[in-house]
C-alpha cells in the first residue's frame, strides 16, 4: 500500500493517509476534498505555503518558493510549470 502522494510527496502508508481513505487514490488526504478529488492548483499552492510556514519557520516568500519547488516535481502539477 506504500505510496507517495503525486501532488505533495507525502508518504501514504495507512488508508487514512489517502484521499477519501481510498488506497487507489494517487493523492493524499491533504491534497484532496472529501470525495477524494484533487484540490485546484491555487488552493494547493496556498495550503502548502502555509503548511511549510507552520512546520519549517520559513517566511511567506521562501515558503511559497519551496511549495512551488515541490509541486513542480510532482506529476499532478506538471502542466503548471
Amino acid at each position: 500500500m506504500k505510496k507517495i502522494c503525486e501532488s505533495c510527496g507525502m508518504p501514504m502508508i495507512t488508508a487514512e493517509d489517502f484521499g477519501a481513505k481510498n488506497t487507489d487514490n494517487k493523492y493524499c488526504i491533504h491534497c484532496t476534498d472529501e470525495l477524494g478529488k484533487l484540490k485546484p492548483f491555487e488552493q494547493k499552492l496556498t495550503d502548502m505555503t502555509h503548511f511549510i510556514m507552520r512546520t519549517s519557520d520559513l517566511n511567506k516568500e521562501n515558503a511559497e518558493k519551496m511549495a512551488k519547488e515541490t509541486m513542480s516535481k510532482m506529476p499532478a502539477w506538471k502542466a503548471y510549470f
Partner: peptide, 13 residues
C-alpha cells in the same frame, strides 16, 4: 538547497 529544504519539510511535518 531548495531540493533539500523542500524534502526536509516532509520529515519536519
Amino acid at each position: 538547497q531548495e531540493s533539500i529544504i523542500s524534502n526536509e519539510v516532509i520529515i519536519r511535518n
